[in-house]
């Protein structure tokens, strides 16, 4: 009965969150030890790389760095222009997001949930609802914080949804996870909406959970079924959900609290 009461409390109220957090301290040593094989395997893989491979990789990275430097230079000019335009519109200035680099230490063994564990937790300032990115796009959000680790729900999880917009024309939609790591589904997209395969979907920032403008997915297929109100649109996540090892936790201005689920009410 106690167990059932605890389950009911935990599913309806956030009161047991501190108990969960402090239990995390006890679990930390076993989680750290469980991560050792992965770290050792990575170390071996890095140390056994051939010199030629490293030289090739170095050349590739130098070239990529050059391209990125060039883009960064253009970015500076664009950012200045953007600020100027925003000032003209009397809009608030967008400040660069602060980020924290983290590594994946485990993947949830439950095949029905797409969750990962990262090696930064409450002691590093990680909070529930915090957006997580990899080098290619939005990966998910933090759903559980322990002292030295945190659990991230990936955008491909079937319980996850994210508001997005088409980068080309600003059409808004909601991308929900399908449970498969390489596919998202766009729901409630009218048959007449201007979305085509190849469109880049970026986070729209609506709902206040995710920052605006980060790549989320690329549309792979649009099926307009006659007689149905909505089109069936599938997209492939931009983030490498099954491969990325190093991730970024985004700290935004004014994002320290999770907006309540009924934020839309009374507006």
């Amino acid at each position: 009965m106690l167990a059932l009461a605890l389950m009911w409390l935990d599913s309806h109220f956030p009161w047991l969150q501190p108990a969960r957090y402090f239990t995390g301290y006890v679990l930390t040593p076993s989680q750290q030890v469980a991560a050792v094989p992965g770290v050792v395997a990575e170390w071996f893989s890095e140390s056994s790389s051939q010199r030629q491979e490293l030289l090739t990789e170095n050349k590739q990275l130098s070239a990529r760095n050059l391209v990125l430097e060039l883009r960064a230079q253009r970015m500076a000019a664009l950012e200045a222009e953007n600020i100027e335009l925003r000032e003209l519109l009397s809009a608030s200035e967008q400040i660069d997001d602060r980020v924290l680099v983290t590594s994946v230490i485990a993947v949830d063994p439950d095949p029905f949930s797409q969750q990962i564990l990262i090696n930064k937790g409450g002691e590093d300032g990680v909070f529930i609802g915090q957006p997580v990115l990899d080098a290619y796009g939005l990966l998910g959000q933090v759903i559980d914080v322990m002292p030295y680790s945190a659990r991230v729900l990936m955008i491909a999880d079937s319980n996850h949804a994210i508001p997005v917009q088409v980068n080309r024309n600003g059409v808004r939609a909601i991308a929900v996870g399908t449970g498969s790591l390489d596919e998202l589904e766009l729901i409630y997209v009218p048959n007449t909406a201007d979305i085509v395969a190849g469109d880049l979907l970026v986070s729209s920032g609506l709902g206040g959970r995710y920052p605006r403008g980060y790549p989320v997915a690329t549309v792979t297929r649009v099926d307009n079924i006659p007689g149905k109100s909505f089109a069936v649109v599938t997209a492939e996540p931009s983030a490498h959900l099954d491969r990325s090892r190093h991730l970024l936790l985004v700290f935004r201005q004014g994002a320290a609290t999770v907006p309540p689920a009924d934020i839309w009410k009374g507006q």
């Binding site: 106690l2 167990a3 409390l9 935990d10 969960r20 239990t23 679990l27």
Partner: peptide, 25 residues
């Protein structure tokens, strides 16, 4: 034994607190 270990398992698997206490009992 179900209480401490169940609690740890619930945190480990991110299940509702009490789920593994119940199963261990």
């Amino acid at each position: 034994l179900a209480l401490p270990l169940g609690l740890l398992l619930d945190v480990e698997h991110h299940s509702l607190l009490g789920t593994h206490i119940l199963t261990l009992v």
